[in-house]
Write a protein that binds this DNA or RNA. Structure first.
Lengths: 114, 114
DNA sequence: CGTAAACTTAACTCAATGGTTAAGTTTCAA
DNA sequence: TTGAAACTTAACCATTGAGTTAAGTTTACG
């Protein structure tokens, strides 16, 4: 095997690529344990459409569900995001360097004005 | 309009959801300014397939291209990743809290053993 | 000038996504 | 026990995505 394909990272990024799914996660970040229908309510799409989004989020490991009676509670699991952050962090220098340069410039100016 | 849809974030995450595209970016992170064919060489797919990936990366603003003669140099632009990091950062507490808890536990144990 | 290198475009295929409506299933409650 | 609430499943549809091969364009060079 030449190349290890990081399927988990694929699934995480692709789950996050949809605005509806990001909104669902954002909702759970503020208020965990909402039911499927409560989660679905704000969106202008059908319940089965939301179900599919929840399936995608579950497959990516970003969501767990627990059934009590006839209602299903949804729980955020942010852990897979850690790897995504880790991947992105490698590129952080490309914008922090820029900020550092700006800060250095501003610092130099400030000193010049003393 | 009820909801602002962040098209840039959609494009960034969906560009990053493909392992070939992530590999292309990783390559440019180490060695900027590679030509299209140099970039394509390591991959087991046709040149037009790579072209399409480069188009996706360009549309997401993650790549710029500059032509000199008949060769096209590719340049990484990591800036759009900043927003993606920002979005993810909101969830960072879910794993750093866990780590903090673990560290606290280990610290407590260490003290107990003194 | 003619050919080859380095892309680029076009046309096509196939599978996956994101949505729909309609028809289940299970559980609660009057 | 009957009906409604809260999902779930199935079947379908249109669009997009990732790949292909084949043909076209532009630039360099002997």
């Amino acid at each position: 095997m030449v190349k290890f394909q990081d399927v988990q990272l694929d699934r995480t990024f692709s789950a996050l690529a949809d605005p509806t799914r990001r909104a669902l996660l954002a909702r759970l970040e503020r208020e965990d344990g909402l039911s499927v229908s409560e989660l679905a309510k704000p969106f202008p799409v059908s319940l089965p459409a939301i179900m599919k989004h929840l399936d995608v989020l579950s497959d990516a490991g970003l969501l767990t569900r627990s059934k009590v009676g006839r209602t299903v509670s949804c729980h955020l699991n942010a852990e897979p995001m850690e790897e995504a952050m880790g991947w992105l962090a490698r590129y952080q220098r490309f914008w922090t360097e820029r900020l550092d340069a700006l800060e250095a410039l501003l610092e130099a100016r400030r000193k010049g004005q003393d």
